[in-house]
């Protein structure tokens, strides 16, 4: 749950103008180009006991993603398909304005946008997750645990989630029971590797991978997920400002470019 503390709010309101002025002058406080990601450090398999996991450090933003498998009943309209569920927790350790409580609209949006990028790219071959039609299918549960918020939770969580899914391994399934302590060598049946890229709009400037201070000063943002073939599979615009049509197209092609780079460097 997010409660705007007077302390946090007041400092940002004073800084907002200074940050906007810097950006309008064509600069970012960490000297990045407008279309440059911060340094990314991944620690795959961080939670070795989970079926899959990845810890990411994107600049100072830190997120831990875990992947768990379970066997359940399929949805009635897709009796031979496995399932995917994505949840996010903005736990209080990550920011002074996060408080404990049920998921609020920001954590729900985070979960759903990351989920959309994965689902719409057809990354997971759901039919291959079927064990017994209509009765038993594998369900994949992705949990995004935000640990330190310095901007762009969307891309941080998404990149770590994809890495975690790439490395995840099925546990043993015997006599209708999942034996979590025994991992097989079998990985998820995957057909794509989506990458998400988020841009903030501050005044007339567009900024890839916004810092927290840039998010506080922004008018709007857009997250664009792309597939390995260079197609766009998911988009989410946020914030109450707007984008021009030219900006929409420009950002889409930047997202495809950025996606290729990230895929090459971190998501093989």
């Amino acid at each position: 749950m997010i409660v705007m503390e007077i302390n946090e709010e007041i400092l940002w309101s004073v800084k907002r103008d200074a940050i906007r002025a810097l950006i309008e002058a064509g600069k970012r406080s960490d000297n990045r180009e407008w279309n440059q990601f911060r340094a990314i450090e991944l620690a795959p398999d961080f939670v070795r006991k989970a079926e899959g996991s990845c810890f990411i450090k994107l600049g100072n933003t830190q997120v831990l993603v875990g992947v768990k498998f379970a066997v359940g009943v399929p949805y009635p309209d897709t009796p031979e398909s496995g399932t995917l569920m994505t949840s996010a927790e903005l736990v209080p350790i990550a920011s002074p304005i996060f408080r404990a409580g049920p998921p609020d609209e920001d954590s729900i949006e985070l979960a759903r946008v990351v989920d959309r990028g994965i689902r719409e790219s057809k990354m997971i071959d759901f039919d291959a997750l079927c064990i017994t039609p209509k009765e038993e299918v594998w369900s994949v549960m992705v949990d995004l645990h935000v640990l330190d918020h310095d901007g762009n939770l969307l891309d941080a969580a998404s990149i770590a989630a994809v890495r975690a899914l790439l490395d995840a391994r099925f546990p043993k399934y015997e006599d209708k029971k999942v034996i979590y302590t025994e991992k097989t060598k079998k990985k998820l049946p995957l057909k794509d590797v989506p990458v998400s890229s988020t841009f903030a709009k501050v005044g007339s400037a567009l900024l890839l991978d916004p810092l927290l201070e840039e998010e506080k000063a922004m008018d709007a943002r857009v997250t664009i997920a792309t597939t390995h073939e260079g197609n766009i599979c998911a988009i989410q615009k946020g914030g109450s400002g707007s984008f021009t049509l030219e900006e929409c197209e420009k950002l889409a092609s930047e997202a495809i470019k950025a996606g290729k780079e990230i895929r090459k460097q971190h998501l093989k």
Partner: peptide, 10 residues
């Protein structure tokens, strides 16, 4: 200038 302030801040 804003650049000067940014330097001072850093």
């Amino acid at each position: 200038s804003d650049a000067a302030v940014a330097r001072a801040e850093k």
